[in-house]
Design a protein around this nucleic acid. Structure first.
Length: 730
DNA sequence: TAAACCGTTGTTTTT
DNA sequence: CAACGGTTTA
């Protein structure tokens, strides 16, 4: 009886096609789900349904693209059926898998995962050693080349074989050298995680069979964005039971540049013979006006299978398109609109602001701060990109993986302990000669004749510190990091001016470590580092409820909001200039259509209200630039779209307000006059070059910066938006 | 060796 | 306008 009640709860409120997908029995299933058609709902219900059918939770695996999506899905499943299912991302799954199994193909399970910055450093090393000209071979471009090859499962050897001219041979050589260095450091980059997992599958059929036996069901979300490696991993995992559920929408494919293959979805029925295909075409999310506008937009793509979404929702408010003289006006208008909606009782977290590039968040932050509106930049300059965090992580990485020379170089003189570039170069040479890692060479400092007495002492000191750190026996990650910070005297040795900032970041990292301890009792350092490498802070935005999230159109995928603002919808920005110029693979039309899909993804996130804005003048890279409205705006239908010209602000007032912004944006430091700390806090006396002396009334974190309310003796209360670099002492 | 200085460079999107 | 790399100077 209980089972049937459960089944009823799972399926009773589903539409026919949804039910067909959710209650599909055995064999491959493809759900082609249009935007807002209940895709996530179908996948979570299907998991619930399978559980109700008696499939044990540990016999299925659900794979999504981002950690954010994985968390969300896991949360929903748990809420629905009270059981935990393994919901993960391709990269986490592979990392976990490799820790356990990579030894079988001659690997070392204590590998370090390199993020893009790490990889770039390696490429730079290659470029330097090969004495290539950085102008013709930019490290970023080279890394893109390498990654693109990896996405298509083309190794360095094959790459070299296929190379035509000298140019291509050089590229292949860089690729080979890069790969060699990673191997020497016992490091894997993001792509390697997938490729090495495939290596294990191929070379150890027994291991694969174990996994195939375990996973009765494999479910994959956002299938349109999978690359070749991911597709092959899925195919391998479902190989025995052939119970694959793939969900996707070709119109939302926005990762071509990362090797996404639409064919994975379009040729699904050939790859998985006998597959059932279910189409979800009814949209439940958006108002009819929003749906009409977005459908008209996407319909212009030619490289597309025709598909029509429909809704029974009423027209709702018109889609609003507004143009502004400057990006400041644009930001201010968005902020005012949000303020208005909040006054009317809207919850800030039910709204969102999307933009094409991360750099666009700053003026918006200013505008929101000016009205003291709560907002949160999702994944701005990431927490994990901060120098302090990288330093601490490098220490930890070195503890797990002593062969990680990149990490070693990073920490050997951080904080500075008298080991300069010359000494490091000598150590490098010694390490190469002795065929050992940099760290091990440091351990043998005493025998290295090439080092001067002072350098030798300094290096020996570092080695001793490392041994000390290695001997730490801590109860958890938080404790470990805390001791690490203390023993390296990391904070005390940073220059006084940066110290408050450093302390704060250290505290945040301690908090992050503490969180890990709580969520993973008994978790180890390797697991902690893996999480830190693969889980960007995009995933944490839900933590701050009641703030308006700002994010790129890319990270908006899979989310929905009552109210959506898409800003900077201008030529060269959306569609982005570089996308059209470079169009890494395929044609310019292909690139344009991907940009259009991106716009489409943004629009379809909106339930009730959609605002689209553009500015005629925008500050890009510090320079004023003129920009034309995006061609995508012309493509919107007239019906249900309100294009009223923006209210022209009185010239003088507009100018004055703009000046105010310009002043605020200028890096003028607020100097701290009293107090023994360097920190901003209420009650501290400060001095400002324009406003004179005053007292801080209030300090509030605002995105990556601080909103500081100061009472100035002459000018009264002012609100300043400051980054940590804007603040100085004395 | 380290801090301070200067010039060059680049910014699409992400695991 | 930044962040980074390379150079100079103490």
């Amino acid at each position: 009886m209980r089972t049937s009640t459960r089944l009823k709860r799972i399926t009773s409120d589903l539409t026919e096609p949804q039910r067909e997908a959710v209650c599909h029995g055995e064999g491959p299933l493809l759900v082609v789900a249009g935007a807002g058609s209940g895709k996530t709902r179908v996948i979570t219900r299907r998991i619930a349904w399978l559980l109700a059918q008696g499939v044990a939770p540990d016999r299925m695996i659900a794979v999504t693209f981002t950690n954010k999506a994985a968390d969300e899905m896991g949360r929903r499943v748990t809420a629905l059926v009270g059981e935990d299912v393994y919901v993960t991302t391709f990269h986490s799954f592979c990392a976990r898998f490799l820790r356990r199994e990579v030894a079988r193909v001659g690997g070392d399970g204590s590998f370090t995962i390199y993020d893009r910055a790490d990889s770039l450093r390696v490429v730079r090393g290659v470029v330097r050693d090969k004495q290539l000209d950085e102008t013709t071979a930019s490290p970023a471009g080279l890394l893109d080349f390498i990654s693109l090859n990896k996405d298509r499962i083309i190794g360095p050897d094959e790459c070299a074989r296929k190379a035509l001219g000298i140019q291509e041979q050089t590229l292949a050589a860089v690729y080979a050298d890069y790969q060699e260095r990673l191997a020497r450091n016992n490091a894997l980059d993001f792509d390697d995680l997938l490729l090495r997992a495939l290596d294990v599958f191929r070379e150890c059929p027994g291991v694969l069979q174990d996994y195939q036996n375990t996973y009765l069901h494999v479910l994959v979300d956002e299938y349109q964005d999978t690359n070749l490696a991911q597709h092959l991993i899925v195919r391998a995992l479902q190989g025995k039971h052939r119970n694959i559920t793939a969900v996707g929408d070709p119109d939302q494919m926005i990762y071509t540049w990362r090797g996404a293959r639409l064919e994975n979805l379009l040729e699904f029925e050939e790859d998985f013979p006998g597959a059932r295909v279910v189409k979800l075409e009814r949209n439940y999310r958006s108002s009819a006006n929003i749906l009409r506008a977005s459908s008209a937009c996407i319909a212009l793509n030619e490289l597309r299978h025709d598909k029509t979404l429909w809704t029974e929702r009423p027209a709702g408010e018109p889609v609003t398109v507004r143009g502004f003289a400057t990006s400041y006006d644009e930001g201010r208008w968005v902020a005012e609109k949000v303020d208005e909606l909040v006054q009317d009782g809207a919850e800030p977290s039910s709204m969102a602001v999307f933009y094409r590039t991360k750099a666009q968040s700053l003026p918006l932050e200013d505008a929101f701060a000016a009205l003291t509106l709560p907002h949160q930049v999702v994944d701005s300059v990431g927490f994990f990109d901060r120098k302090v965090v990288k330093d601490l992580r490098a220490y930890l990485q070195l503890l797990v993986n002593p062969r990680d020379d990149e990490a070693c170089v990073r920490v050997i003189n951080t904080p500075s302990r008298g080991i300069g570039a010359v000494t490091v170069a000598k150590l490098r040479a010694a390490a190469a000669r002795l065929r050992v890692s940099l760290l091990e060479a440091a351990g043998r400092a005493e025998e290295l004749q090439s080092l001067g007495t002072r350098a030798r002492g300094a290096v020996a000191g570092f080695w001793q510190l490392y041994r000390e750190l290695d001997a730490i026996e801590a109860g958890g990650m938080r404790e470990l990091v805390k001791q690490l910070v203390e023993r390296t005297r990391y904070v005390e040795r940073t220059p006084p001016l940066e110290r408050p900032d450093t302390q704060e970041t250290v505290d945040m990292f301690l908090g992050y470590a503490g969180e890990y301890d709580e969520r993973h009792p008994g978790g180890d350092l390797m697991g902690f580092l893996e999480q830190a490498a693969l889980v960007s802070d995009v995933d944490g935005w839900k933590a701050q409820a009641s703030a308006v999230p700002f994010m790129t159109l890319h990270s908006a995928k899979g989310l929905e909001f009552d109210t959506v603002f898409i800003v900077g919808v201008e030529e060269d920005l959306l569609p982005h200039r570089r996308a059209l110029d470079e169009c890494i693979q395929g044609t310019e039309q292909g690139a344009l259509e991907e940009e259009r899909r991106l716009f489409y993804v943004g629009m379809t996130r909106a339930r009730d209200r959609l605002f689209i804005t553009h500015a005629r003048r925008r500050t890009v890279q510090g320079r004023e630039q003129m920009s034309a409205p995006s061609r995508f705006l012309d493509e919107l239908p007239d019906e249900g779209v309100d294009r009223q010209a923006a209210p022209q602000p009185a010239a003088a007032a507009g100018f004055a307000r703009e000046m105010e912004y310009v002043l605020k944006r200028k890096r003028i430091s607020l100097r701290i006059l009293d107090g023994d700390g360097d920190r901003l806090a209420a009650g501290v006396r400060v001095s400002h070059p324009h406003y004179g002396e005053g007292t801080i009334l209030e300090v509030q974190p605002m995105g990556s910066r601080y909103m500081v309310r100061v009472n100035f003796a002459q000018h009264g209360t002012m609100v300043l938006l400051l980054a940590s670099g804007d603040v100085g002492r004395e």
